[in-house]
Structures are given as C-alpha cells and as structure tokens.
C-alpha cells in the first residue's frame, strides 16, 4: 500500500503513450472525415482486395514463425544443456547483431541479395548458378526470420534452462531412451517458452512494414504497408485506424488460440 506511488511514473507513461493513442485510434476508426460515426472503414477492410492483404500477411508471418521455431528450438535446446561448453560464445554471437539497428541489417540483406549483389558474386565465383530472390516472398520471409529469430530462441532457452535436470535423470533411471525423455519430459516442460516465442515472433512479423517494403520492393503489400500508406500517402487516417484495430484483433485472437493450445498441454501451469 505504502509503495503504491512507485508505479506513478509508469501509470503516467501508460496513459500518455498507450491509453491516449489507443483512444485516438478508436476514435478515427469509427468516424469519417467529418467526425460522424461510421463503420465504413471496417466494411471496406473486408472487401476482397483488402482481405487478401490481411490473409497474405498472416500467411507470411505464420511461415516465418514456423521457420523460426524449427531453427530456434534446437539451438535453444543445445544452449540449455549443462554439458555444452560454448554457451557464452554462442550467446555472444546471437547478441552482437542485435547491437546494430535492424533497419541497417535489413538494408544489408538488400545488398546481399541483389542480382549483382554479394551472394551472387560469390556464387558466380564458385561457378554456381545465380539466385534471384530479392523482391519476392522468400526475401521477405528471410528478412523476418533473420530479424526475429532471437525472440524465439531466448524464451525457449529460458524455459528449458528452468527445467530441473533431476527430472531428466529420473526419466533416464526409469529406462526412458533419449527420444522418450525429450518427448515426455523436456518438450512438455518447454511449452511455455515456445508459446511466448511464437507470440514474440508472430506479433512483429504480422505488423512489420519496413521488411516487406525493403526486401519486397513494394511488389505486394502486407497489412503493415497498407496501414502505413493510409497514414503517409493516401491521407485516409480513418481507414488506417480501422485497419489497425482489425490487426490488433487478429493478434489478440491468434494469441488466444496459442494460449488455448498451451493450456490443453497443461504447460501453462508451469509459468
């Protein structure tokens, strides 16, 4: 009770930068340019053209999240093994790129993937065929996986590191082979980490607009680009705000599904 004032600065912060902006988004989403109430933005968002943008964004974000999970889980698993010696080096290597601005890192991918870029020069030197993936889906997914992979590894690693190793040992003592130990003990106990990993990758992946605009070359729009466009060039803040609210709803909905799956596995009780 006595310490309540400590949270004061944060409450002010939250009011200024979360509550008020959220209110403004809601206000614009449900009004037209004259300030009258309307749902036009929402019905427009569900026209086939705009709906396809939303679905495509969810698809690309889901693929990126799945790849991050496939790549990230084994790494997190190795990192959490007590006998693994190179732990601090590996952690360091994960952290170093994150010290650099992610815009800059995405730009670098552009020069790597260009037709006459670094990758193709290397391939040409090795007399291998060129690959031309800049400005395609693949480049966008690559950019997302590259940028968001640490957000998958770290929570999974935290969950795995928390597992009491004696549980693994008892399973082994009781005759479980390594596959069974992993399937019956380690994997279920790591589900909370996997859930927060998925959340932390899917959320930025479905909303990003920089990665698709740099690596996708404006070829196709994801929902983030569509919203950016409404605010920056088309000057239709009402529609942009409606799209933003829909995107928020999509994120909340997908989080609920993921948490639901988590509960069914009874992993949630460990948090």
């Amino acid at each position: 009770m006595r310490n309540k004032w400590i949270s004061g600065p944060y409450l002010v912060w939250m009011a200024l930068f979360i509550i008020i902006p959220l209110f403004l988004t809601g206000y614009y989403a449900f009004t037209d340019t004259d300030g009258a109430f309307t749902m036009a933005g929402f019905s427009r968002a569900f026209e086939p053209m705009y709906l396809s943008v939303l679905l495509n964004s969810i698809r690309i974000a889901a693929i990126s999240t799945a790849i991050c999970l496939l790549l990230g889980y084994p790494v997190a698993y190795i990192l959490s093994r007590p006998e693994f010696a190179g732990k601090s080096t590996l952690f360091f290597l994960f952290a170093v790129p994150m010290w650099m601005n992610y815009l800059l890192r995405t730009y670098s991918w552009m020069s790597i993937l260009e037709t006459n870029g670094i990758l193709n020069s290397l391939l040409a030197f090795l007399r291998l065929p060129k690959i031309d993936i800049l400005y395609t889906d693949s480049a966008v997914i690559l950019g997302m996986v590259y940028n968001f992979l640490p957000f998958m590894i770290l929570p999974i690693h935290t969950a795995l590191a928390k597992i009491d190793y004696s549980l693994v040992e008892s399973a082994q003592d009781l005759g479980a082979n390594p596959v069974t130990v992993f399937k019956r003990v380690v994997l279920p106990l790591s589900v909370p980490g996997v859930v927060s990993g998925i959340t932390m990758v899917f959320m930025p992946a479905v909303t990003t607009f920089i990665i698709p605009s740099l690596l996708g070359g404006g070829q196709y729009m994801l929902i983030g680009n569509l919203i950016e466009n409404q605010f920056l060039t088309a000057y239709d803040w009402n529609f942009g705000a409606a799209l933003s609210l829909i995107l928020m709803a999509v994120i909340i909905l997908s989080m609920m599904i993921v948490l639901r799956v988590d509960k069914d596995n009874e992993g949630g009780t460990l948090i």
């Binding site: 943008v53 196709y220 729009m221 239709d236």
Partner: peptide, 15 residues
C-alpha cells in the same frame, strides 16, 4: 485524388 489513390492501391495489392 482519392480515385487515383484507390486504383494505385489496387495495382500494388493485386497479384
């Protein structure tokens, strides 16, 4: 202007 913006979005969004 709005019509220009609309068709331009259609161009960028279309597959």
């Amino acid at each position: 202007r709005d019509d220009f913006d609309r068709v331009w979005s259609e161009v960028l969004i279309g597959n």
